[in-house]
């Protein structure tokens, strides 16, 4: 019973939340607050509409590119910072300053410089993802046991090989935790910057529908974006677990923030 209930619990939670929504909206009788069922019914038209589908897929493609570039840049930097005091001392204050900057808010300025094209949108996502990935890679690399590196050195591994073949795998659980946060952040940054720029994408569809009073579309889009976040996170968690099946299980609740 318990074993069956555990994987089903998030599904039950979803159903419970939708049910609560349904009841709340029936109780409130507010025109601008459609019921969960009405909103769910509005999803297929959005997903079959060619233009909005292309729009959303283009957003996701930019998100994937921005996320990938951020990983390629942040993981090596974080590992290097974790293993070299000087590198950490060099970058940490700068990163501390960048930390509280709202990345999606850079959208108008970046658009002013680079135009409204894909480059601006991808760059903003890149900026949004980088920091947590750097931070977690840094922490992971810093925590690698000295004796493990010594053991590698005694086997004849050069410093470069040690970074690649000992620090990287040893820090992998922590790095992937950063990537998981980064993935959700990529989605958040994407949606937020689209809401701010109002050019295209899921965020734009959301606010266009709001402006035109199509409230069921608004709520349907909320479900779509929410489901994207939940599914991306769940899919990444499966990959992560498989990649680090050798490691001690850690706290597995997602820590996401925007």
């Amino acid at each position: 019973m318990n074993g069956l209930l555990k994987p089903l619990a998030p599904v039950l939670a979803c159903c419970g939340l939708l049910l609560a929504w349904q009841l709340a909206s029936l109780g409130l009788k507010n025109d601008s607050f459609p019921t969960a069922l009405e909103s769910l019914r509005a999803i297929p038209p959005i997903l079959t509409d060619k233009e909005s589908l292309i729009n959303i897929l283009a957003s996701l493609r930019r998100m994937a590119i921005g996320f990938g570039l951020a990983l390629a840049f942040s993981i090596p930097l974080g590992l290097l910072m974790g293993r070299s005091r000087a590198t950490a001392a060099f970058f940490n204050p700068l990163l501390m300053l960048i930390y509280p900057v709202p990345k999606a808010a850079l959208m108008p300025i970046i658009m002013l410089w680079l135009g409204v094209g894909d480059i601006s949108k991808t760059l903003v996502i890149f900026l949004g993802v980088s920091l947590p990935v750097i931070y977690h890679s840094f922490e992971g690399a810093k925590a690698v046991e000295e004796k493990m590196l010594w053991s590698g050195a005694a086997m004849g591994l050069s410093p470069g090989e040690r970074l690649l073949r000992i620090v990287l795998p040893a820090a992998l659980p922590e790095i992937l935790t950063g990537c998981r946060t980064g993935l959700v952040l990529a989605l958040i940054t994407m949606v937020t910057s689209e809401m701010i720029a109002r050019q295209s994408g899921a965020g734009n569809i959301l606010f266009n529908a709001l402006d035109m009073g199509q409230y069921d579309t608004v709520f349907a889009m909320i479900i779509i974006v929410g489901a994207m976040g939940i599914c991306l996170d769940a899919a990444f968690e499966i990959v992560r677990r498989w990649l680090v099946r050798w490691s001690e299980p850690q706290f597995d609740m997602p820590l996401s923030f925007s």
């Binding site: 039950l12 958040i188 709001l210 909320i222 996401s256």
Partner: peptide, 26 residues
């Protein structure tokens, strides 16, 4: 715990900013 944990698991990775239009309407 049994009630909160699955709900948190679902809501935590949800991009909260997507809820903003709903908050605006409500």
């Amino acid at each position: 715990n049994a009630a909160v944990k699955p709900i948190v698991r679902v809501l935590a990775p949800l991009p909260k900013v997507a809820l903003y239009p709903a908050f605006l309407l409500l």
